[in-house]
Design a binder for these strands. Structure first.
Lengths: 154, 154
DNA sequence: CTAAATAGTGAACCTGGTTGTCTATCGTGT
DNA sequence: ACACGATAGACAACCAGGTTCACTATTTAG
């Protein structure tokens, strides 16, 4: 069909949709007391999770080297979102845990994402939004996590 | 509605959709003789366009400093995708133009994106895909270009 | 009990972003 | 005609985050 949209619009729109949501999230997070958290940090904190993790584990989860994971942890530690403590059962390991500040950021993010989804539902209708989500599930990997995000673009 | 999907799935799926397409594009581009072009380079070459541009102009288009644009141009030049020449009408300026190699990459990308869109259409149906594109147009900025892509994530 | 595997760290390097400074050139206003 | 402001490009220093290689300390397995 010659009246199909050009193929390059699809990735662009997907990316713009993603950016629109992430930018709105971080604008609101900044307003709610988290001005210096970057988009990447959200993914990393999500990957750290409520039980904590280690640099090696985090690297595996994110698909980057343990050294890169370590650097990101350092940054997050400097910003006060995570803290490290030696594992008493294995003194080689250092457990990385979210601080109350980090947990607060995560909880607020979840809330804001729900609000943003509601905004889209208001614009598109709940039915269309559900269809959009279902279609995206069809064409993307099942496993939502394991994003391999950092440094992927450049 | 308590049975709505959690809001965080939407950005994740949009990003995964984007990544799926871009990864497939670059796998295919690598197979077709462009193994070292990175996702970012595609956007930059698109922004350079058929008429060429300058570092300052490119920086404005991409939303980065002229120095950052200059560095990216250097990389692209080293890879053989662009070339620079002094502007005879204004000897301060250096015009950046796509080389035949760069034009080839751009043309192949357009073709591959069309093929990828056709794959999605086969999986979802042309109707649903059109609806998805239409809905994304509704919730994203009108202006497809001006992405501010580079370095935005970190 | 020794040897292999593992966790963390540090160094050197790459890309791509920033800001600040500097020179060369262009264009305008007196 | 010319001086001065604006512009284009380049260079330096720095930052974030990525890589690989090398090393120490500790744990685990044979």
């Amino acid at each position: 069909m010659s009246n199909d949209p050009p193929g390059f619009e699809l990735p662009l729109r997907l990316f713009l949709g993603f950016r629109t949501l992430i930018d709105a999230l971080h604008a609101e997070l900044a307003r709610q007391g988290h001005p210096d958290v970057r988009p990447m940090h959200g993914f990393v904190m999500q990957a750290i999770g409520l039980n904590g993790t280690t640099a090696v584990e985090l690297g595996r989860t994110l698909g980057v080297s343990k050294q890169a994971a370590g650097k990101t942890i350092e940054t997050l530690e400097r910003l006060g979102y995570v803290e490290r403590a030696r594992d008493p059962h294995d003194t080689r390991r250092k457990i990385v845990r979210l601080t109350p500040h980090g947990l607060d950021a995560l909880a607020r993010s979840a809330r804001i994402f729900d609000d943003l989804r509601a905004e889209w539902a208001a614009k598109l209708g709940e039915e269309r939004l559900r269809a959009l989500e279902a279609d995206l599930r069809t064409v993307t990997p099942q496993d939502v996590f394991r994003l391999d995000v950092p440094g992927w673009f450049g």
